[in-house]
């Protein structure tokens, strides 16, 4: 019988479909793992954004992974019991975002302000001489910025409360 810790470890290989360097565990969207018996596992997930279109796909990816390690009875449920916010990204998750060329979200104190969004750190050169072009981007979780030092556009994984 698997322990919960072993299930969490097994799920570390399941990556975000849009950011292939980032695991769903590090993203903080897997909120609960329960081993309910021999070969019976229950997993709870929560979306980064309510309208995230990748949600069903991610549920299936989690179920596939559990099947791969030999679990027979699998239930994956999406809930808002513990809603996601960007502080839930792990330290490793923040590094993965950077590796993918995305500015990681700054830690917030429960409030998002314009100041927090402006001048985010450029993931290419580390400068803070940057400006936000628009709070919306190619996916719901990203905003678009420009760096005045290395003259490159970049995206940020948005801070969300």
């Amino acid at each position: 019988m698997f322990t919960e810790k072993e299930i969490w470890t097994a799920l570390e290989v399941v990556k975000d479909p849009e950011i292939p360097t980032l695991s769903m565990v590090d993203m903080g969207i897997i909120t609960k793992v329960e081993v309910r018996g021999e070969s019976n596992v229950y997993v709870e997930m929560t979306p980064t954004f309510t309208g995230c279109p990748a949600l069903k796909m991610m549920e299936n990816m989690v179920a596939e992974r559990l099947k791969e390690i030999g679990i027979e009875t699998i239930e994956v449920k999406t809930t808002f019991d513990t809603p996601w916010n960007s502080n839930k990204l792990t330290e490793r998750g923040l590094l993965c975002l950077k590796k993918h060329g995305l500015a990681p979200p700054p830690k917030h104190e429960g409030e998002i302000t314009m100041e927090l969004l402006e001048h985010c750190i450029c993931p290419h050169c580390g400068s803070i001489n940057t400006e936000m072009k628009t709070p919306f981007g190619p996916t719901l979780c990203r905003s678009m910025h420009y760096c005045h030092d290395c003259l490159q556009a970049f995206e940020q994984f948005k801070p969300v409360v």
């Binding site: 709070p135 919306f136 969300v160």
Partner: peptide
């Protein structure tokens, strides 16, 4: 409670709409 949970999530998302 079910509405409160969803509302906690949505209010943060709408913040960006209001900024815009």
């Amino acid at each position: 409670e079910p509405l409160a949970q969803v509302a906690k999530k949505i209010k943060g998302e709408l913040k960006y709409h209001v900024f815009h």
